[in-house]
């Protein structure tokens, strides 16, 4: 079965467990949501899935084949793309070159990479921005460019790390539509990490909830909406949610 799978991933930083036996899977054509309070380990999980962080235990599998031990650029070349919180665009380069860089990184010639970059800008709906210097873009455009860049080479999977942070409601709705299109039109498997729980509930086919590094709930949006555990994780007092972490640190 085609899927990107986190199989019992644990990550420990100097004794502090950032993830413990986390599992999730992303399938082509579907949007999977990953939510959880701050410090739950969401970004760490994305880093593990994309080769930026080696798991202490467990395996990352792409269509059944292990990705553990591969460098980030090798994971990307196998079709697992990601975006970053805050965009991380090549700020000195024009927008189109930002996309071209990925084309070149994936082995295309510059001419072929430019052609694909133009097609991708068009598909995302940001063609008029092509010649703007990336560092001068407003926040929301920056996010869309980052998504366009990650979609170069039509990856099988894309991991979006808080793409809606700082967006207004109409902007977030537009983004949600784009995310649905990525899944349906490109048949790409999407993992959406978001603080905006409303956006995740509306956009995702399936949602995984992380708390203190462990998966506490996993199911369709209705199930998550109704879950007592999730409500507790989010609504629990500050003291409650930090207690387990403090214990581990001592």
């Amino acid at each position: 079965m085609r899927q990107l799978e986190a199989d019992n991933i644990s990550v420990a930083f100097a004794g502090l467990k950032a993830l413990s036996e986390a599992r999730l899977s992303v399938t082509p054509g579907h949007v999977t949501g990953l939510i959880g309070p701050n410090g739950a380990g969401k970004t760490t999980l994305v880093n593990v899935l994309t080769g930026f962080q080696a798991p202490t235990e467990g395996a990352v599998k792409l269509d059944g084949e292990s990705l553990v031990g591969l460098a980030p650029h090798q994971v990307r070349r196998r079709g697992v793309a990601r975006t970053f919180q805050g965009g991380r665009l090549f700020r000195e380069l024009p927008v189109i070159d930002n996309l071209e860089v990925t084309g070149v990184g994936l082995g295309l010639s510059r001419a072929a990479a430019v052609a694909e970059a133009q097609a991708m800008l068009d598909w995302v709906g940001i063609a008029p921005l092509a010649d703007r210097i990336a560092g001068t873009l407003p926040y929301t455009d920056e996010r869309r460019v980052a998504i366009g860049r990650a979609l170069m080479g039509r990856p099988g999977y894309i991991l979006l790390d808080e793409p809606a942070a700082g967006m207004s409601a109409p902007e977030a709705a537009e983004l949600a539509a784009l995310i649905r299109r990525i899944a349906t039109e490109l048949n790409c498997g999407v993992l959406l990490i978001e603080h905006n729980v409303g956006l995740v509930l509306e956009t995702c086919d399936h949602i995984v909830v992380l708390d203190s590094g462990a998966v506490i709930e996993d199911g369709p949006p209705e199930q998550i909406r109704a879950s007592e555990t999730v409500r507790h994780a989010y609504m629990g007092t500050a003291a409650d949610s930090t207690l387990p972490v403090l214990e581990v640190m001592q």
Binding site: F90, L93, T102, V104, G105, R149, A150
Partner: peptide, 21 residues
């Protein structure tokens, strides 16, 4: 393409890795 990829890696190494460089 090598020059372009290298300058991208100079300016934003993390994103360059995520771009397959």
């Amino acid at each position: 393409r090598h020059g372009l990829a290298l300058r991208a890696a100079r300016d934003e190494p993390t994103a360059a890795l995520a771009s397959g460089i």
